[in-house]
Amino acid sequence: MTGQSPESPGRVTLTTIASEAGVSVSTVSKVLNGRSDVSTDTKERVEAVMDHLGYQRRPARRRGAVIDLVLNELDSLWSVEIIRGVDEVLHAAGASMVLSAVHGRSSDTREWIDQLAARRSNGAILVVSELTPQQRRRLTALDVPFVLLDPVGSVEALVPTVGATNWAGAVSATEHLIELGHTRIAHLAGPRQVLCSRARADGFRATMEAAELPVPEAWAPHGEFNDASGRTELARLLDSLDASGEEPPTALFAASDLQALGAFEVLRDRGYAIPGDMSIVGFDDLPVARWTHPALTTVRQPLLDMASVAANALLRIIDGEPVDQFRLELATQLVVRGSTAPPRKSTTRPS
């Protein structure tokens, strides 16, 4: 903030601490929450920087706070990771969490805001949600601070958001397949209206275009982030290729691990070997990605860290601290496992 000394107690931001310590914002968040997955050296360095800058933790206002965590659905593996990350932070801060599912329906959203007002919640984390101007005005009128996690649509400039480097993640996934020698690559995209889905699709197409590899429109269908959509969209694509006599792709980049798992089922039902006949890359790195056979190559989205950063940001706002950075994107990372390999010399269609 302009005119504020970094040494002013209560004014130091996590971004300042991360920069001084040479670590990421999510690492500082882990140290604040006593996470065990931080090395002793890193923990001591971060804490030394906090002491040097005069950072003061102020738990009084957050203790006993009630935080609403609003998701589109509660029964997906993706949602479970987000719930775990938020719960860990709130538990350490002495705050409580209320879970709501809106299923993308405006009527459920209105009902949730009415319930939030009735229970006098202290703040809200909205996950994969689109915040309309009317909803923002209502939350502001109720004096309820909020943070958007992986927002659906465009977001106003001063609304705090936490996301991941979706475009870069898609680029790394596509480059991996191209470097293996694949030239016929399909993409199972997510919902058209969701920002992270569009970023992944754009990253895929930009990388294919840079490599001068064509992508027929039918080879990049949009669906939902679930296994049923992965099954449906890939089956539709393979059926159309069978009807036309065209050779199938040798590789597939799915916009989510669940879509990739749906694709696994279709390919096995049709006699395709993975990765022999088709390599597959997912996105998210859910725990189930390591349990498939072969294990799924995927782009790790730091879901626990994203949830932790969002929860910490909201608690700092509740404590009256300034928002140091309204848009945070945590880095994604390609994780190579057994579901990708160079294409076979011949692309014989499975019988």
Rank of each mutant, 00 (worst) to 15 (best):
G94D: 13
L131C: 08
S279K: 00
A251C: 09
V266S: 04
V323S: 03
R316E: 09
R337E: 05
R62C: 08
L90K: 05
D51W: 00
V144H: 04
N33I: 10
A117L: 06
A92Q: 15
G169E: 11
L99A: 12
V288K: 04
H187F: 07
Y55V: 00
V299N: 02
V89S: 06
L158E: 15
G54F: 00
A273I: 03
H91Q: 15
L304E: 14
L188F: 06
V38A: 03
R337S: 09
H187K: 03
S172R: 13
P322H: 07
L188C: 04
F253L: 10
Q135F: 12
L74H: 07
D108C: 13
A186M: 04
R105I: 09
F326R: 02
H293V: 14
A311L: 05
T13K: 01
L90H: 08
G153L: 15
A117T: 11
R61M: 14
A95M: 12
R316Q: 06
V128D: 04
R105F: 09
P322E: 10
F283A: 03
R184T: 05
G223V: 03
T16C: 03
A92S: 15
A157K: 15
V288A: 13
H182I: 09
T15S: 06
L286F: 10
S256R: 08
E111L: 12
P350F: 04
Q56E: 15
H222C: 13
A243I: 09
A206R: 04
A117I: 07
D75W: 10
A48D: 00
P343V: 02
W167T: 11
E73C: 07
L69R: 02
E212W: 08
L286A: 07
A65N: 04
L237V: 11
T232N: 11
A311F: 05
R120W: 09
P59S: 14
A331N: 09
V102P: 00
S351A: 13
G320Y: 12
R349H: 09
I82Q: 06
V23N: 01
Q56K: 13
P6M: 12
H182V: 09
D75Y: 14
G94C: 14
E217D: 13
G245C: 10
V215R: 03
Y272E: 03
A189F: 03
V147F: 06
T16F: 01
I317M: 14
P287E: 15
D75R: 13
P350Y: 03
G34E: 08
L99N: 13
R45P: 00
T347Q: 14
E156I: 12
A118K: 12
T332R: 01
A164K: 04
A173S: 14
S19V: 07
L14Y: 02
A93C: 14
T27G: 02
T297S: 15
R327Y: 05
E321W: 02
R35I: 02
P322G: 07
L148R: 05
M97P: 05
W78L: 08
T161C: 15
V194P: 00
P249L: 08
K43W: 08
K43P: 00
E212R: 14
V155M: 12
E329M: 10
G169W: 09
C196V: 08
E247L: 14
N122T: 06
T15D: 03
